[in-house]
Design a protein around this nucleic acid. Sequence first.
DNA 1: TAGATTGTTAATCGATTAACAATC
DNA 2: TAGATTGTTAATCGATTAACAATC
Lengths: 205, 205
Amino acid sequence: MAQKIIPNIVIGRLPVYLRTLQYMLEEGRQVTSSQELGERLGFSAAQIRKDLSQFGEFGKQGTGYNIQYLADQLQGILKVNRDWDVVVVGAGDLGSALARYQGFANRGFHVKMIFDSDSQKIGTEIGKFIILDSADMITSIQAAGIRIAMIAVPASDAQEAANQLVKAGVKAILNYAPVNLSVPHGVRVQYIDPVIHMQHMTYYN
Amino acid sequence: MAQKIIPNIVIGRLPVYLRTLQYMLEEGRQVTSSQELGERLGFSAAQIRKDLSQFGEFGKQGTGYNIQYLADQLQGILKVNRDWDVVVVGAGDLGSALARYQGFANRGFHVKMIFDSDSQKIGTEIGKFIILDSADMITSIQAAGIRIAMIAVPASDAQEAANQLVKAGVKAILNYAPVNLSVPHGVRVQYIDPVIHMQHMTYYN
DNA sequence: TAGATTGTTAATCGATTAACAATC
DNA sequence: TAGATTGTTAATCGATTAACAATC
């Protein structure tokens, strides 16, 4: 049976919809519309309806969308109606900040380990974590069955870190190092390089 | 005279091209081709040629692109052939990591000030910075003529921070708080929310 | 009922790719 | 010269928007 492939660009918007719905819930709201969501996010109402319609019918004509219900559905679609364990590679300023970041746990992502290769750092504490030796990374991650990693090592070490993560069975990498990674098919990478974003904006200045 | 508007999506790729060219220079390379760049980045060669052709002719048939020359051109286009001063709002873990991040200076972005509203933090040091009082933010930024800011405050404070930055004359905001900001026309915002990226990847798991 | 809003279709718009003449 | 690679055009592909019947 022909499985419909949903455009990646649509998938990328769903977490943004979800985040906004969750804020609406916090505001005590119960119902919203494609129009309201669109205004809040700067998307067209038509686009939001189209995106959602890829996955089913979640609204009611004349009324709009029940926020709690739609949020639950989106969580299911994105597979974030469960918790995910995460590792951090690199215990510098950024890696440490990631390990301590409060914004992960309440959205279902739990940092479980943080690694570094610097013997000065290994064994020391960051918040509730003890920095582990990168040399043990593959076995530790495999043993824990962790599928998601964040790379926060220098650019020169990032590809090697990625290689090891892949060997350890990681399927999703959030890469903070300013380099493109090459990974096998089936492993996903997302990039966060603040300089890229800033250079995008300076163009318009 | 009809000024050609370059698609935003093209502008967004230029910094990635530039970054790769700069690595090639570090590797001692002199010349590259759209094909090689494409393979390295996972884009098609045609797309790279098309993107670049929006801005002029930078290559030579049969030979390819002189890396130094193309990098210089891209820097000019992106207006990063000069230095930019930046402020950080929020001196928590993330703001502190941003203030200390080494990856900015060597790409032309210089953090000049970091602000917080917590009286416990104001006046204390982060690296070479003394944390300034958010209450003085507008005047300090105006006086320094700074146009770029990074927001690293809790979600609940981000819109207010953005409002003040806009008042201070900031034109580009890199927002690490997990909320959509509403800003006047002429001010650009880029968003970095790691959870959004991770939720994008969990879909495929 | 009248008003609002969905889900969906068709039309439009925009971005990517294929192909190739030009030329180094 | 032969081979390589650009810049550009036209074709294709994909994404967004407009419009509206259905219906709450």
